[in-house]
Simulated assay, not measured.
Amino acid sequence: MTSRTSNLNPSQHNSRAHLAGKPTWGFTTILLLTAGLLLSVTLAVMLGPVAVTPGTIWRIALSHLPWLDQWIPVTWTKPEQYIVWEIRFPRVLLGVVVGAGLAVTGATIQALIRNSLADPYILGVSSGASVTATLVIVFGAFGFLGRLALPLSAFIGSLTAMLMVFALARVAGSISTTRLLLAGVAVSMMLSAVTSFIVTMAPNEKGIRDAMYWMMGSLAGAQWDTLFIPSLIVAVGTAVLLTRYRSLNALLTGEETAVTLGVNVQTFRVLLVVVASLLTGAVVSVSGSIGFVGLMIPHIVRLIVGSDHRRVLPVSLLAGAIFVVWADVCARLVLAPQELPIGIVTAVCGGPFFVWLLRRSSYSFGGEK
């Protein structure tokens, strides 16, 4: 009797072999990255015009936990309390959430279209979120939604952009990787032009300045009350994807193979589109458009731990968080006391990485080159 896998082409065999590769690296890598994330958060809060010791940082943080506050003596000054808890900690934690969300979204989109050149920024998803989010920032649109106005509008924009990309890429009922990437670039350019037009129509100079700075990416507006919604969405979205890691793995082997493995490809694609749009919208609404994180991090992670999404997703989450935390440190300190938009820092890193990917002989997961 002929084995089912004997009908797979060589690229599908390679994909399956890669899915099973490097199993021992997963758990160890997660532990190391978790320790690295804690260290990165500590150092990022320490660094700045006013030096703060690690012990002071964590005493201040733990003193805000209801069951520990009475056991921690106050050995810090009020300025230290304000700098650590009100300014630096929310910003660093927002960097953690943004990096985690962008990396997980990048891994999802790359699995969705089976190509490592894809990310929310390149496919125009971030640009779509930027259009509707800029409307909220500049004109106060959807004000009746209150605090939900920005994340909800960004989600609508990102979902619309992704649907546009898939609609433009579908020819004769089929979608190719090349058409998806080209459609993503086209949609991104069109929506960026729309965003620029919205900014030029701002009623005052402050609105223009705020919108332009936000469009280049920034964590400067981080506050504790802005953390809850994106943190919840990133956590829930990642958990949903982890429960479907087998379907993500099957998708990498090709649509026909995924169907034979019991995956309802059409329904699963809809789920991935909605989750990716929701994650992108949540992140863009609080940080602006930050490019290349979703491109670089998942690709590097796959080189380390293989293509099994049971490992790729949590490792990408941690690695993305660490990367954005340090990108924000660079944005804060390189030209201090002035501050660079974080999108410039990620572009400096991501641009050469993208060129490197283009120069490789193969950049797909076993299908189209």
Rank of each mutant, 00 (worst) to 15 (best):
Ser158Ala: 15
Leu279Thr: 04
Ile229Asp: 04
Gly288Val: 01
Val41Glu: 05
Ala167Ser: 15
Gln70Val: 10
Met162Ile: 08
Arg311Ile: 11
Leu182Thr: 11
Asn249Asp: 14
Thr177Ser: 15
Leu94Thr: 08
Gly254Thr: 08
Asn264Met: 12
Val236Gly: 00
Met190Pro: 01
Val92Cys: 08
Ala118Met: 04
Glu205His: 05
Gln12Ile: 08
Phe354Thr: 04
Ala172Arg: 15
Ile344Thr: 07
Val334Phe: 14
Ala129Lys: 00
Thr5Phe: 15
Thr195Ile: 08
Met190Ile: 15
Val136Asp: 05
Phe353Arg: 01
Ser289Gln: 14
Leu340Phe: 13
Lys206Gly: 07
Met1Pro: 13
Ile322Arg: 00
Ser11Met: 09
Leu181Val: 09
Leu252Trp: 01
Ser364Phe: 02
Gly306Glu: 02
Phe268Met: 07
Glu368Met: 09
Asp225His: 10
Leu163Trp: 00
Trp214Gln: 04
Ala141Val: 14
Thr56Glu: 15
Gly173Asp: 04
Met212Asp: 06
Ser188Arg: 06
Lys369Ile: 11
Asp119Asn: 12
Met216Leu: 15
Leu112His: 05
Arg302Leu: 00
Gly237Asp: 06
Ala61Asn: 06
Val301Cys: 05
Ser153Gly: 13
Gly26Cys: 09
Val45Lys: 11
Val96Lys: 02
Val98Ala: 03
Leu102Pro: 03
Asn14Pro: 03
Arg179Gly: 10
Ile57Trp: 03
Ala129Phe: 05
